[in-house]
Amino acid sequence: MKSAKFDHQRMVTLEEAVAALGSADGEARIMGGGQSLGPMMNLRLAQPDLLIDLSRVGGLDGIEVAGDTIRIGARVTHARIEDGAVPGVTGAYMQFVASGISYRSVRNRGTIGGSVAHADPSADWPSALLALGGDVVIAGQDGERRMPLDGFQIGPFATGLGFEEILTGFELPTLGEGAKCGYYKVNRKPGEFADAIGAVVIGSAPRVVCGATEAAPFRVAAAEERLAAGVAEISVADARDMIAAQDPGFDDYDLQIHAVALSRAVGRAFA
């Protein structure tokens, strides 16, 4: 089970990397920690012609707080977040999420940017960050642009990134002390990809996400309204109706476990 052939280019600057994406023959892929792409390449489910290695590119592994925003570089590893590198309430929430991603030896190399760009529907960050809200920072030939996390992921393994763009980081809200966060992942073994995710962040306004679907994670409007009205719990039965109202195409079992995840995430937020 060995990867198909590919070329490898180690970049020093972002500009170089963007240019390489533009000039590549065939399929070029950005490689962060390689912890999602590596297995897929070993299985030959992904066979890029060119791998663009960002590990030498400066400025992608910072964590900075600027006012009400935390800027997190794409190359920040899950392990650093697990170890508390992101400050404040936002950091505590992200720390909890990070600790449940795969295993420590994967978290040491896997990156938050890689995970979101890879856009596996069962991965943690796409759902967890959507609940947090904020922007994705993107580098392209015309320089830097931002996209809101809302709408960034458009499907399984599909995002709003252009072919010649690179995800460079995130600008996430700095949650105040009164903010409440809850994250509930349904799986059968620690570290496995999720069967269902419920993510709840109540900052300036409640954001409730149903994740680990067949497509992109989505916000559950009725749940957000309920929480905005000051209700501090959502029953499984109600969660089922709220999720079903958004027509996710679940069978009964999937609807159930997503509802349980949502209900329990709310419970954790108010615990």
Binding site: M31, Q35, G38, D53, S105, V106, N108, R109
Partner: peptide, 18 residues
């Protein structure tokens, strides 16, 4: 699992060039 710069990593899904 091996150590890379003192931290455990998966050597099967880490390319040697990395």
């Amino acid at each position: 699992t091996v150590l890379m710069n003192g931290e455990p990593v998966r050597s099967c899904i880490t390319f040697a060039v990395a």
